[in-house]
Write a protein that binds this DNA or RNA. Structure first.
Lengths: 239, 239
DNA sequence: CACGCCTGTATAACATAGTTACGCTAGGGT
DNA sequence: ACCCTAGCGTAACTATGTTATACAGGCGTG
Protein backbone atom coordinates (compact mmCIF):
# COMPACT_ATOMS: atom_id res chain seq x y z
CA UNK A 1 0.00 0.00 0.00
CA UNK A 2 1.35 3.37 -0.91
CA UNK A 3 2.02 6.07 1.59
CA UNK A 4 -0.64 8.17 -0.06
CA UNK A 5 -3.18 5.43 0.41
CA UNK A 6 -2.24 4.96 4.01
CA UNK A 7 -2.66 8.66 4.59
CA UNK A 8 -6.13 8.63 3.12
CA UNK A 9 -7.22 5.65 5.15
CA UNK A 10 -5.76 6.99 8.36
CA UNK A 11 -7.44 10.29 7.60
CA UNK A 12 -10.80 8.63 7.09
CA UNK A 13 -10.49 6.69 10.31
CA UNK A 14 -9.56 9.84 12.16
CA UNK A 15 -12.38 11.75 10.53
CA UNK A 16 -14.97 9.18 11.50
CA UNK A 17 -13.66 8.68 15.00
CA UNK A 18 -12.93 12.20 16.12
CA UNK A 19 -14.37 14.52 13.55
CA UNK A 20 -12.86 16.94 11.10
CA UNK A 21 -11.33 19.24 13.67
CA UNK A 22 -9.16 16.39 14.93
CA UNK A 23 -7.70 15.96 11.48
CA UNK A 24 -4.31 17.57 11.69
CA UNK A 25 -1.13 16.99 9.81
CA UNK A 26 0.96 16.01 12.79
CA UNK A 27 -1.37 13.41 14.23
CA UNK A 28 -2.04 12.08 10.80
CA UNK A 29 1.64 11.74 10.03
CA UNK A 30 2.26 10.13 13.38
CA UNK A 31 -0.49 7.62 12.70
CA UNK A 32 1.38 6.28 9.71
CA UNK A 33 4.81 6.80 11.20
CA UNK A 34 5.89 9.58 8.94
CA UNK A 35 6.52 13.30 9.10
CA UNK A 36 4.09 16.05 8.28
CA UNK A 37 5.89 16.54 5.02
CA UNK A 38 4.11 13.57 3.53
CA UNK A 39 0.92 15.56 3.48
CA UNK A 40 2.60 18.16 1.33
CA UNK A 41 4.42 15.69 -0.85
CA UNK A 42 1.27 13.80 -1.73
CA UNK A 43 -1.52 16.30 -1.43
CA UNK A 44 0.04 19.72 -1.54
CA UNK A 45 -1.36 20.55 1.87
CA UNK A 46 -4.29 19.88 4.11
CA UNK A 47 -6.72 21.21 1.55
CA UNK A 48 -5.60 18.62 -0.92
CA UNK A 49 -5.93 15.96 1.71
CA UNK A 50 -9.46 17.08 2.52
CA UNK A 51 -10.27 16.90 -1.13
CA UNK A 52 -8.92 13.37 -1.40
CA UNK A 53 -10.85 12.33 1.70
CA UNK A 54 -14.06 13.72 0.32
CA UNK A 55 -13.60 11.93 -2.96
CA UNK A 56 -12.90 8.72 -1.16
CA UNK A 57 -15.93 9.18 1.06
CA UNK A 58 -18.11 9.69 -1.98
CA UNK A 59 -16.75 6.49 -3.43
CA UNK A 60 -17.76 4.72 -0.23
CA UNK A 61 -21.13 6.38 -0.48
CA UNK A 62 -21.54 5.21 -4.03
CA UNK A 63 -20.58 1.69 -3.01
CA UNK A 64 -23.16 1.72 -0.23
CA UNK A 65 -25.88 2.85 -2.62
CA UNK A 66 -24.76 0.37 -5.26
CA UNK A 67 -25.61 -2.42 -2.87
CA UNK A 68 -29.25 -1.64 -3.42
CA UNK A 69 -29.80 -3.96 -6.33
CA UNK A 70 -32.58 -3.12 -8.76
CA UNK A 71 -35.63 -5.19 -8.00
CA UNK A 72 -38.86 -5.57 -9.90
CA UNK A 73 -40.34 -2.76 -7.82
CA UNK A 74 -38.49 0.44 -8.68
CA UNK A 75 -40.52 2.48 -6.21
CA UNK A 76 -39.49 0.17 -3.41
CA UNK A 77 -35.94 0.64 -4.66
CA UNK A 78 -36.36 4.38 -4.26
CA UNK A 79 -37.47 3.86 -0.67
CA UNK A 80 -34.55 1.58 0.05
CA UNK A 81 -32.11 3.95 -1.61
CA UNK A 82 -33.35 6.74 0.61
CA UNK A 83 -33.01 4.60 3.70
CA UNK A 84 -29.55 3.54 2.61
CA UNK A 85 -28.67 7.18 2.10
CA UNK A 86 -29.78 7.82 5.64
CA UNK A 87 -27.97 4.80 7.00
CA UNK A 88 -24.73 5.89 5.41
CA UNK A 89 -25.08 9.37 6.82
CA UNK A 90 -25.91 8.17 10.33
CA UNK A 91 -23.09 5.64 10.25
CA UNK A 92 -20.74 8.58 10.54
CA UNK A 93 -22.35 11.99 10.77
CA UNK A 94 -18.90 13.51 10.92
CA UNK A 95 -17.97 12.01 7.62
CA UNK A 96 -21.29 12.95 6.06
CA UNK A 97 -21.07 16.56 7.09
CA UNK A 98 -17.50 16.67 5.96
CA UNK A 99 -18.52 15.41 2.55
CA UNK A 100 -21.08 18.09 1.97
CA UNK A 101 -19.77 20.79 4.16
CA UNK A 102 -16.14 21.37 3.55
CA UNK A 103 -17.16 24.64 2.21
CA UNK A 104 -14.48 26.72 3.65
CA UNK A 105 -12.88 26.48 7.08
CA UNK A 106 -9.37 25.29 7.38
CA UNK A 107 -9.55 23.63 4.06
CA UNK A 108 -8.37 25.57 1.11
CA UNK A 109 -11.96 25.01 0.17
CA UNK A 110 -11.00 24.31 -3.34
CA UNK A 111 -14.03 22.16 -2.93
CA UNK A 112 -16.75 24.35 -1.65
CA UNK A 113 -17.49 26.66 -4.44
CA UNK A 114 -18.26 24.57 -7.39
CA UNK A 115 -18.22 20.90 -6.88
CA UNK A 116 -20.82 20.90 -9.47
CA UNK A 117 -21.43 17.82 -11.41
CA UNK A 118 -23.82 17.64 -14.27
CA UNK A 119 -21.55 17.79 -17.22
CA UNK A 120 -19.17 20.23 -15.67
CA UNK A 121 -15.86 18.54 -16.41
CA UNK A 122 -14.21 19.99 -13.34
CA UNK A 123 -15.78 19.47 -9.97
CA UNK A 124 -16.36 16.16 -8.34
CA UNK A 125 -17.53 13.32 -10.56
CA UNK A 126 -17.73 11.02 -7.55
CA UNK A 127 -20.66 13.12 -6.42
CA UNK A 128 -22.71 12.71 -9.55
CA UNK A 129 -21.94 9.02 -9.60
CA UNK A 130 -23.69 8.84 -6.26
CA UNK A 131 -26.62 10.75 -7.63
CA UNK A 132 -26.84 8.45 -10.63
CA UNK A 133 -28.02 5.52 -8.55
CA UNK A 134 -31.10 7.47 -7.64
CA UNK A 135 -31.62 8.67 -11.19
CA UNK A 136 -31.52 5.13 -12.40
CA UNK A 137 -34.17 3.97 -9.95
CA UNK A 138 -36.39 6.86 -10.93
CA UNK A 139 -35.85 6.08 -14.58
CA UNK A 140 -37.06 2.54 -13.99
CA UNK A 141 -40.05 3.83 -12.08
CA UNK A 142 -40.89 6.04 -15.03
CA UNK A 143 -40.39 3.18 -17.42
CA UNK A 144 -42.63 0.94 -15.36
CA UNK A 145 -45.33 3.57 -15.47
CA UNK A 146 -45.38 3.95 -11.74
CA UNK A 147 -44.84 7.70 -11.88
CA UNK A 148 -45.51 10.33 -14.49
CA UNK A 149 -42.92 12.42 -16.25
CA UNK A 150 -40.22 11.98 -18.79
CA UNK A 151 -36.87 13.16 -17.50
CA UNK A 152 -35.74 11.22 -14.44
CA UNK A 153 -33.07 13.75 -13.48
CA UNK A 154 -35.18 16.54 -11.98
CA UNK A 155 -37.45 13.97 -10.38
CA UNK A 156 -34.45 12.32 -8.76
CA UNK A 157 -33.50 15.82 -7.68
CA UNK A 158 -36.77 15.99 -5.79
CA UNK A 159 -36.02 12.77 -3.96
CA UNK A 160 -32.48 13.81 -3.32
CA UNK A 161 -33.55 17.14 -1.88
CA UNK A 162 -35.97 15.57 0.49
CA UNK A 163 -33.75 12.77 1.76
CA UNK A 164 -30.76 15.06 2.06
CA UNK A 165 -32.65 17.64 4.04
CA UNK A 166 -34.29 15.06 6.21
CA UNK A 167 -31.03 13.36 7.07
CA UNK A 168 -29.28 16.60 7.93
CA UNK A 169 -32.13 17.77 10.11
CA UNK A 170 -32.39 14.39 11.76
CA UNK A 171 -28.67 14.46 12.51
CA UNK A 172 -28.92 17.79 14.27
CA UNK A 173 -31.59 16.38 16.52
CA UNK A 174 -34.89 17.40 15.04
CA UNK A 175 -37.43 14.68 14.60
CA UNK A 176 -36.58 13.16 17.95
CA UNK A 177 -33.65 11.05 18.86
CA UNK A 178 -34.20 7.40 18.03
CA UNK A 179 -35.23 7.31 14.43
CA UNK A 180 -38.71 8.50 15.19
CA UNK A 181 -38.43 10.83 12.24
CA UNK A 182 -38.52 8.02 9.74
CA UNK A 183 -42.12 6.95 10.30
CA UNK A 184 -43.23 10.42 11.33
CA UNK A 185 -41.68 12.50 8.59
CA UNK A 186 -39.58 10.73 6.02
CA UNK A 187 -41.95 7.93 5.08
CA UNK A 188 -45.00 10.18 4.71
CA UNK A 189 -42.90 12.67 2.79
CA UNK A 190 -41.67 10.09 0.32
CA UNK A 191 -45.14 8.68 -0.04
CA UNK A 192 -46.62 12.10 -0.63
CA UNK A 193 -44.10 12.90 -3.32
CA UNK A 194 -44.78 9.59 -5.02
CA UNK A 195 -48.49 10.14 -4.77
CA UNK A 196 -48.02 13.56 -6.29
CA UNK A 197 -46.02 11.99 -9.06
CA UNK A 198 -48.97 9.83 -9.83
CA UNK A 199 -48.18 6.49 -8.27
CA UNK A 200 -51.11 4.26 -7.45
CA UNK A 201 -51.90 4.38 -3.70
CA UNK A 202 -52.22 0.63 -3.37
CA UNK A 203 -48.97 -0.10 -5.19
CA UNK A 204 -47.29 2.67 -3.26
CA UNK A 205 -48.39 1.14 0.00
CA UNK A 206 -46.79 -2.14 -0.95
CA UNK A 207 -43.56 -0.51 -2.05
CA UNK A 208 -43.40 1.50 1.15
CA UNK A 209 -43.90 -1.70 3.12
CA UNK A 210 -40.90 -3.19 1.35
CA UNK A 211 -38.93 -0.18 2.43
CA UNK A 212 -40.00 -0.74 5.99
CA UNK A 213 -39.13 -4.41 5.77
CA UNK A 214 -35.68 -3.51 4.57
CA UNK A 215 -35.27 -1.10 7.44
CA UNK A 216 -36.42 -3.69 9.95
CA UNK A 217 -33.98 -6.21 8.51
CA UNK A 218 -31.21 -3.70 8.94
CA UNK A 219 -31.79 -2.49 12.42
CA UNK A 220 -33.36 -3.93 15.49
CA UNK A 221 -36.00 -1.30 15.92
CA UNK A 222 -38.89 -3.00 17.64
CA UNK A 223 -40.17 0.35 18.84
CA UNK A 224 -41.05 1.43 15.36
CA UNK A 225 -44.35 0.05 14.24
CA UNK A 226 -44.80 -0.82 10.59
CA UNK A 227 -46.73 2.34 10.02
CA UNK A 228 -45.03 3.32 6.85
CA UNK A 229 -48.40 3.89 5.31
CA UNK A 230 -49.27 6.58 2.87
CA UNK A 231 -50.68 8.79 5.52
CA UNK A 232 -51.28 8.27 9.18
CA UNK A 233 -47.59 8.37 10.04
CA UNK A 234 -47.59 8.14 13.81
CA UNK A 235 -47.05 11.63 14.90
CA UNK A 236 -44.45 12.24 17.57
CA UNK A 237 -45.44 13.73 20.83
CA UNK A 238 -44.93 17.42 20.68
CA UNK A 239 -44.26 19.40 23.91
CA UNK B 1 -23.70 49.54 21.90
CA UNK B 2 -21.92 47.13 24.14
CA UNK B 3 -18.60 45.59 23.29
CA UNK B 4 -20.28 42.23 23.18
CA UNK B 5 -22.76 43.46 20.66
CA UNK B 6 -20.06 45.01 18.53
CA UNK B 7 -18.19 41.72 18.55
CA UNK B 8 -21.22 39.82 17.36
CA UNK B 9 -21.96 42.26 14.59
CA UNK B 10 -18.37 42.40 13.44
CA UNK B 11 -18.30 38.63 13.55
CA UNK B 12 -21.42 38.36 11.43
CA UNK B 13 -20.04 40.79 8.89
CA UNK B 14 -16.80 38.87 8.75
CA UNK B 15 -18.63 35.58 8.48
CA UNK B 16 -20.77 36.74 5.60
CA UNK B 17 -17.96 38.45 3.78
CA UNK B 18 -15.14 35.99 4.11
CA UNK B 19 -16.57 32.83 5.57
CA UNK B 20 -16.05 31.00 8.82
CA UNK B 21 -12.37 30.36 8.30
CA UNK B 22 -11.66 34.08 8.29
CA UNK B 23 -13.25 34.42 11.69
CA UNK B 24 -10.32 34.66 14.06
CA UNK B 25 -9.92 36.30 17.37
CA UNK B 26 -7.20 38.71 16.35
CA UNK B 27 -8.88 40.13 13.27
CA UNK B 28 -12.16 40.27 15.10
CA UNK B 29 -10.66 42.15 18.00
CA UNK B 30 -8.86 44.48 15.64
CA UNK B 31 -12.11 45.19 13.85
CA UNK B 32 -13.59 46.68 17.00
CA UNK B 33 -10.33 48.14 18.25
CA UNK B 34 -9.86 45.82 21.19
CA UNK B 35 -7.65 42.97 22.24
CA UNK B 36 -8.33 39.30 21.73
CA UNK B 37 -9.18 39.04 25.40
CA UNK B 38 -12.61 40.51 24.74
CA UNK B 39 -13.57 37.26 23.08
CA UNK B 40 -12.77 35.40 26.27
CA UNK B 41 -14.30 37.96 28.57
CA UNK B 42 -17.61 37.95 26.77
CA UNK B 43 -17.87 34.52 25.21
CA UNK B 44 -15.42 32.31 26.99
CA UNK B 45 -13.63 31.54 23.76
CA UNK B 46 -14.19 31.19 20.07
CA UNK B 47 -16.67 28.38 20.56
CA UNK B 48 -18.85 30.65 22.62
CA UNK B 49 -18.58 33.32 19.99
CA UNK B 50 -19.60 30.85 17.30
CA UNK B 51 -22.56 29.91 19.42
CA UNK B 52 -23.58 33.53 19.80
CA UNK B 53 -23.20 34.14 16.09
CA UNK B 54 -25.35 31.15 15.27
CA UNK B 55 -28.04 32.29 17.65
CA UNK B 56 -27.98 35.73 16.15
CA UNK B 57 -28.13 34.32 12.65
CA UNK B 58 -31.17 32.27 13.58
CA UNK B 59 -32.80 35.41 14.92
CA UNK B 60 -32.16 37.05 11.57
CA UNK B 61 -33.56 33.96 9.91
CA UNK B 62 -36.66 34.13 12.03
CA UNK B 63 -37.08 37.80 11.20
CA UNK B 64 -36.82 37.06 7.50
CA UNK B 65 -39.45 34.35 7.74
CA UNK B 66 -41.65 36.50 9.92
CA UNK B 67 -41.95 38.97 7.08
CA UNK B 68 -44.10 36.45 5.29
CA UNK B 69 -47.41 37.64 6.62
CA UNK B 70 -50.24 35.14 6.81
CA UNK B 71 -52.56 35.60 3.88
CA UNK B 72 -55.92 34.05 3.14
CA UNK B 73 -54.11 31.32 1.20
CA UNK B 74 -52.03 29.27 3.63
CA UNK B 75 -50.68 27.01 0.90
CA UNK B 76 -49.36 30.02 -0.95
CA UNK B 77 -47.84 31.07 2.34
CA UNK B 78 -46.04 27.75 2.50
CA UNK B 79 -44.63 28.35 -0.97
CA UNK B 80 -43.50 31.84 -0.06
CA UNK B 81 -41.98 30.64 3.20
CA UNK B 82 -39.98 28.08 1.28
CA UNK B 83 -38.78 30.65 -1.19
CA UNK B 84 -37.90 33.00 1.64
CA UNK B 85 -35.99 30.21 3.28
CA UNK B 86 -34.05 29.79 0.07
CA UNK B 87 -33.53 33.51 -0.34
CA UNK B 88 -32.11 33.80 3.13
CA UNK B 89 -29.75 30.92 2.53
CA UNK B 90 -28.56 32.22 -0.81
CA UNK B 91 -28.11 35.72 0.59
CA UNK B 92 -25.12 34.33 2.45
CA UNK B 93 -24.33 30.69 1.91
CA UNK B 94 -21.45 31.01 4.33
CA UNK B 95 -23.76 32.13 7.08
CA UNK B 96 -26.31 29.48 6.26
CA UNK B 97 -23.84 26.64 6.36
CA UNK B 98 -22.37 28.01 9.52
CA UNK B 99 -25.80 28.06 11.14
CA UNK B 100 -26.39 24.41 10.52
CA UNK B 101 -22.92 23.29 11.42
CA UNK B 102 -22.14 22.01 8.00
CA UNK B 103 -18.88 23.66 8.42
CA UNK B 104 -16.17 21.33 9.52
CA UNK B 105 -12.44 21.71 9.94
CA UNK B 106 -11.18 24.88 11.51
CA UNK B 107 -14.41 25.85 13.16
CA UNK B 108 -14.76 25.25 16.82
CA UNK B 109 -17.43 22.80 15.83
CA UNK B 110 -18.53 22.65 19.41
CA UNK B 111 -21.76 23.48 17.75
CA UNK B 112 -22.47 20.63 15.46
CA UNK B 113 -23.29 17.98 17.94
CA UNK B 114 -26.56 18.68 19.57
CA UNK B 115 -28.28 21.90 18.94
CA UNK B 116 -31.49 20.08 19.27
CA UNK B 117 -34.68 21.88 19.91
CA UNK B 118 -38.12 20.35 20.24
CA UNK B 119 -38.74 20.40 23.90
CA UNK B 120 -35.17 19.78 24.76
CA UNK B 121 -34.67 22.55 27.28
CA UNK B 122 -31.03 22.96 26.38
CA UNK B 123 -30.10 23.44 22.80
CA UNK B 124 -31.11 26.33 20.65
CA UNK B 125 -34.60 27.75 21.01
CA UNK B 126 -33.91 30.22 18.22
CA UNK B 127 -33.93 27.27 15.90
CA UNK B 128 -37.36 26.04 16.81
CA UNK B 129 -38.68 29.57 16.64
CA UNK B 130 -37.65 29.55 13.02
CA UNK B 131 -39.39 26.26 12.49
CA UNK B 132 -42.53 27.56 14.12
CA UNK B 133 -43.28 29.90 11.27
CA UNK B 134 -43.61 26.94 8.99
CA UNK B 135 -45.65 24.98 11.51
CA UNK B 136 -48.05 27.85 11.79
CA UNK B 137 -48.60 28.06 8.05
CA UNK B 138 -49.18 24.32 7.91
CA UNK B 139 -51.58 24.58 10.81
CA UNK B 140 -53.59 27.15 8.90
CA UNK B 141 -53.54 24.98 5.81
CA UNK B 142 -54.92 22.13 7.86
CA UNK B 143 -57.52 24.36 9.42
CA UNK B 144 -58.60 25.62 6.02
CA UNK B 145 -59.04 22.05 4.88
CA UNK B 146 -56.46 22.42 2.15
CA UNK B 147 -54.46 19.42 3.32
CA UNK B 148 -55.30 16.35 5.33
CA UNK B 149 -53.87 15.44 8.69
CA UNK B 150 -54.11 16.63 12.24
CA UNK B 151 -50.70 17.42 13.67
CA UNK B 152 -48.98 20.22 11.76
CA UNK B 153 -45.56 19.50 13.26
CA UNK B 154 -44.52 16.40 11.31
CA UNK B 155 -46.08 17.82 8.17
CA UNK B 156 -44.04 20.97 8.59
CA UNK B 157 -41.10 18.63 9.06
CA UNK B 158 -41.75 17.29 5.60
CA UNK B 159 -41.66 20.76 4.10
CA UNK B 160 -38.62 21.67 6.10
CA UNK B 161 -36.75 18.57 5.00
CA UNK B 162 -37.40 19.24 1.39
CA UNK B 163 -36.59 22.92 1.34
CA UNK B 164 -33.53 22.43 3.48
CA UNK B 165 -32.14 19.70 1.29
CA UNK B 166 -32.96 21.56 -1.87
CA UNK B 167 -31.27 24.72 -0.72
CA UNK B 168 -28.12 22.94 0.37
CA UNK B 169 -27.85 21.00 -2.86
CA UNK B 170 -28.57 24.08 -4.88
CA UNK B 171 -25.84 25.94 -3.02
CA UNK B 172 -23.27 23.32 -3.88
CA UNK B 173 -24.07 23.69 -7.54
CA UNK B 174 -26.51 20.97 -8.36
CA UNK B 175 -29.63 22.01 -10.16
CA UNK B 176 -27.67 24.35 -12.39
CA UNK B 177 -26.35 27.73 -11.61
CA UNK B 178 -28.94 30.43 -12.05
CA UNK B 179 -31.91 29.34 -10.04
CA UNK B 180 -32.96 26.80 -12.62
CA UNK B 181 -33.56 24.38 -9.82
CA UNK B 182 -36.56 26.27 -8.54
CA UNK B 183 -38.87 25.58 -11.48
CA UNK B 184 -37.22 22.27 -12.31
CA UNK B 185 -37.08 20.70 -8.88
CA UNK B 186 -38.30 22.74 -5.95
CA UNK B 187 -41.66 23.83 -7.32
CA UNK B 188 -42.67 20.39 -8.59
CA UNK B 189 -41.46 18.87 -5.34
CA UNK B 190 -43.53 21.21 -3.22
CA UNK B 191 -46.51 20.70 -5.45
CA UNK B 192 -46.16 16.95 -5.31
CA UNK B 193 -46.01 16.95 -1.54
CA UNK B 194 -49.08 19.14 -1.36
CA UNK B 195 -50.90 16.95 -3.83
CA UNK B 196 -49.95 13.95 -1.75
CA UNK B 197 -51.29 15.73 1.30
CA UNK B 198 -54.59 16.03 -0.47
CA UNK B 199 -54.71 19.58 -1.75
CA UNK B 200 -56.99 20.26 -4.66
CA UNK B 201 -54.98 20.49 -7.91
CA UNK B 202 -56.73 23.62 -9.10
CA UNK B 203 -56.31 25.42 -5.81
CA UNK B 204 -52.74 24.21 -5.61
CA UNK B 205 -51.99 25.64 -9.03
CA UNK B 206 -53.25 29.02 -7.93
CA UNK B 207 -51.24 28.94 -4.72
CA UNK B 208 -48.12 27.91 -6.59
CA UNK B 209 -48.66 30.78 -8.97
CA UNK B 210 -48.72 33.15 -6.03
CA UNK B 211 -45.41 31.71 -4.99
CA UNK B 212 -44.04 32.36 -8.42
CA UNK B 213 -45.40 35.89 -8.40
CA UNK B 214 -43.68 36.51 -5.12
CA UNK B 215 -40.44 35.21 -6.51
CA UNK B 216 -40.76 37.36 -9.62
CA UNK B 217 -41.42 40.39 -7.47
CA UNK B 218 -38.29 39.64 -5.51
CA UNK B 219 -35.82 39.02 -8.24
CA UNK B 220 -35.47 40.08 -11.79
CA UNK B 221 -35.51 36.66 -13.32
CA UNK B 222 -36.95 37.06 -16.78
CA UNK B 223 -35.32 33.81 -17.84
CA UNK B 224 -37.54 31.77 -15.60
CA UNK B 225 -40.90 31.20 -17.15
CA UNK B 226 -43.94 31.01 -14.91
CA UNK B 227 -43.94 27.27 -15.12
CA UNK B 228 -44.47 26.63 -11.49
CA UNK B 229 -47.23 24.26 -12.40
CA UNK B 230 -48.00 21.04 -10.66
CA UNK B 231 -46.09 19.01 -13.13
CA UNK B 232 -44.36 19.91 -16.35
CA UNK B 233 -41.53 21.75 -14.61
CA UNK B 234 -39.16 22.59 -17.42
CA UNK B 235 -36.54 19.96 -17.25
CA UNK B 236 -32.95 21.06 -17.45
CA UNK B 237 -30.74 19.82 -20.20
CA UNK B 238 -28.80 16.86 -19.02
CA UNK B 239 -25.49 15.94 -20.64
C1' DC C 1 -12.42 59.21 52.55
C1' DA C 2 -9.90 54.77 52.22
C1' DC C 3 -10.05 50.14 51.44
C1' DG C 4 -11.19 46.05 49.04
C1' DC C 5 -13.50 43.73 45.41
C1' DC C 6 -15.24 42.97 40.95
C1' DT C 7 -15.26 43.75 35.99
C1' DG C 8 -13.29 44.75 31.75
C1' DT C 9 -9.20 45.38 29.43
C1' DA C 10 -4.33 45.06 27.63
C1' DT C 11 0.14 42.91 27.25
C1' DA C 12 2.64 39.14 26.72
C1' DA C 13 3.61 34.51 26.66
C1' DC C 14 2.38 29.65 25.54
C1' DA C 15 0.56 25.73 22.76
C1' DT C 16 -0.97 23.98 18.67
C1' DA C 17 -1.13 23.45 13.77
C1' DG C 18 -0.40 24.64 8.78
C1' DT C 19 3.34 25.58 6.06
C1' DT C 20 8.00 26.23 4.14
C1' DA C 21 13.15 25.87 3.69
C1' DC C 22 16.64 22.95 3.28
C1' DG C 23 19.31 18.95 3.15
C1' DC C 24 19.69 13.89 2.84
C1' DT C 25 19.01 9.35 0.64
C1' DA C 26 17.77 6.04 -2.82
C1' DG C 27 16.74 4.74 -7.33
C1' DG C 28 16.98 5.11 -12.26
C1' DG C 29 18.58 6.95 -16.60
C1' DT C 30 22.49 8.66 -19.46
C1' DA D 1 30.40 7.10 -12.79
C1' DC D 2 27.46 10.90 -12.74
C1' DC D 3 23.35 13.43 -12.16
C1' DC D 4 18.60 14.16 -11.57
C1' DT D 5 14.34 13.49 -9.42
C1' DA D 6 11.12 11.84 -5.89
C1' DG D 7 10.20 11.14 -1.30
C1' DC D 8 11.27 12.06 3.19
C1' DG D 9 12.94 14.17 7.80
C1' DT D 10 14.35 18.08 10.64
C1' DA D 11 13.68 22.31 11.97
C1' DA D 12 12.02 26.73 11.65
C1' DC D 13 8.33 30.23 10.52
C1' DT D 14 3.70 31.89 10.93
C1' DA D 15 -0.98 32.15 12.35
C1' DT D 16 -4.23 31.42 15.83
C1' DG D 17 -6.63 29.85 20.11
C1' DT D 18 -5.76 30.27 24.76
C1' DT D 19 -3.97 31.51 29.35
C1' DA D 20 -1.39 34.18 32.91
C1' DT D 21 -0.89 38.36 34.84
C1' DA D 22 -1.28 43.11 35.77
C1' DC D 23 -3.63 47.49 35.48
C1' DA D 24 -7.65 50.75 35.66
C1' DG D 25 -12.15 52.16 36.93
C1' DG D 26 -16.38 51.76 39.40
C1' DC D 27 -18.80 50.66 43.54
C1' DG D 28 -20.05 49.41 48.07
C1' DT D 29 -18.68 49.38 52.90
C1' DG D 30 -16.11 50.60 56.99
Amino acid sequence: MTTKERLIEAGLRMLEAEGPEALNARKLAAAIGASTMTVYTHFGGMAGLYDALIRRAFLQFGDALAEVKPSDDPVADVFVLGLTYREFALASPQRFRFMFGVTAPGSGAAVAQDLTNEGSPSGMPEMSATFDHLVEAVRRALEAGRIRGDDPVPIAGQFWSMIHGFVLLEMTGFFGTRGEGVPAVLAPLASNVLLGLGDDPAKLEKSAQKGYDWLASREQTPTIQPTMSVRRGRRPRRE
